[in-house]
Amino acid sequence: MASGGDDLVKYITEKVVVYIENPRAVHARRKAEKQPWAEKWFGTLPLAWSVWRSKWSRGGESKE
C-alpha cells in the first residue's frame, strides 16, 4: 500500500509528463479558452455589478 506522499509525487509526475509531451499550440489554446477568474469564482455577480454601475454612472436615467 502506497503512502499519501508517494501518490502525490506520482500524480504530479504524470501531469508534468503530459504537459511536456503536448505541443505549445495546445497550451496556447487551453490558455485562451479559460474563463475570466471573476466569472469562475463569482458567477454572474460581476455582470450584475457592471450593469448597475453603468446605470449609476449615466445619472440614474429611468423609463418614467
Rank of each mutant, 00 (worst) to 15 (best):
M1K: 12
A2Y: 03
S3G: 10
S3M: 11
S3H: 09
S3T: 10
G4Q: 13
G5I: 05
L8I: 06
V9R: 15
V9S: 13
I12P: 00
I12W: 01
T13E: 09
E14P: 00
V18Q: 08
V18R: 09
V18L: 05
Y19N: 15
Y19R: 15
Y19P: 01
I20C: 00
I20L: 03
E21L: 10
E21V: 07
N22K: 14
N22P: 01
P23Q: 08
V26L: 08
V26S: 10
A28Q: 01
A28M: 03
R29Y: 04
R30T: 04
K31G: 06
K31R: 12
E33A: 09
A38M: 06
A38D: 05
E39R: 07
K40S: 08
F42R: 01
F42Y: 07
F42I: 03
F42P: 00
G43M: 01
T44V: 09
T44E: 06
T44W: 00
L45H: 04
L47H: 10
A48L: 06
A48R: 07
W49P: 02
W49R: 12
S50R: 14
V51P: 01
W52Y: 13
S54D: 03
S54G: 09
S54V: 07
K55I: 10
S57E: 10
S57V: 02
R58S: 15
G60D: 03
G60E: 06
E61R: 07
E64G: 13
E64P: 02
